[in-house]
């Protein structure tokens, strides 16, 4: 049965809808509870993980650490999504699970005025300030997703459907999502399951290698892993061998191919010394 990924501009509302969808369909709800498990297994702070998912990059934030935390979440989430019948929410899965046909992606939004009203009520602030806050939050969401995944998460083309709670009530949104799951196109097939398995494997390999190679990009296809790394010409062989060895030890990896992208900035810096 399909996997459902819900994204929302209001965290609480989205969470409630995702929960209700999981309840109606009898699916497992995969939410921020996953962070506690990742924190325990990887010895990182749960707060840091949540912050990496929520906060837009600041001027002084350490990008590499944030990317690492996000990769931890991504790898753990993808592993969970390999089992069917899951409703995922709040883990940014809509940004890294793309091109998998049995994954249904829905975004829930509010009309700008309605969103400002919610913020004014929950934060007990004047409406004018709430409007500005809503605008700032949307901008922040955009900056966050562009920085972390080079995608704008407010772009409707990332989703199969966008539902506005301005006119549709929550009940209707839940009903529509549950209806969509029944469509034949969202049923898992051998190929779509393979695509998801490939993504999970690529995420595991990337996570294992990213401390040593922070800019690494990984693709996987049926156990064959293709890694793209940056390197100076003189280190190329050594690094390729390291990647091959480190990735080859991971479960599920049958063959490793390493492509080197020439590090021109590093080369220029070296030659000017």
């Amino acid at each position: 049965m399909p996997v459902i990924i819900v994204s929302a501009d209001d965290f609480q509302q989205g969470r409630e809808i995702a929960h209700r969808v999981a309840g109606v369909l009898g699916y497992r709800f995969l939410g921020r509870d996953l962070l506690a498990r990742v924190a325990q297994e990887k010895q990182v702070s749960q707060q840091d993980l949540a912050r990496a998912l929520d906060e837009p990059p600041g001027l002084l934030s350490r990008r590499s650490r944030r990317q690492r935390l996000l990769s931890e979440i991504e790898a753990a989430c993808l592993e969970q999504l390999l089992e069917d019948n899951v409703v995922a929410y709040g883990l940014a899965a809509h940004l890294y699970v793309r091109g998998v046909s049995h994954v249904l992606k829905v975004r829930i939004i509010n009309e700008p005025e309605q969103r400002a009203n919610i913020l004014a009520q929950t934060g007990n602030i004047p409406l004018e300030r709430a409007r500005k806050l809503a605008q700032r939050q949307t901008g922040g969401e955009r900056r966050w997703s562009q920085d972390a995944y080079q995608l704008d998460q407010t772009d409707p083309s990332l989703y199969d459907m966008v539902l506005s709670l301005g006119t549709l009530e929550q009940d209707k949104a839940v009903e529509i999502i549950c209806d969509m799951v029944g469509y034949r196109k969202f049923q898992p097939m051998t190929y779509s399951r393979k695509c998801l398995r490939d993504k999970a494997l690529a995420a595991q390999v990337r996570l294992a290698l990213m401390e040593r190679f922070p800019d690494i990009r990984v693709e996987a296809n049926d156990g064959t892993v293709v890694a793209y790394i940056q390197s100076l010409k003189k280190d190329q062989r050594k690094k390729q061998e390291q990647v091959r060895q480190m990735a080859g030890e991971l479960p599920g990896v049958r063959h490793v191919e390493v492509h080197v992208i020439r590090d021109y900035f590093g080369q220029a810096a070296q030659s000017s010394r």
């Binding site: 975004r107 083309s157 989703y159 199969d160 459907m161 506005s164 301005g166 549709l168 469509y183």
Partner: peptide
Amino acid sequence: DASLYDLVIHINQLTVDD
């Protein structure tokens, strides 16, 4: 901007009939 609409439907996985 999706917030201008009540419903945005992506014709890809979903067909015209859906």
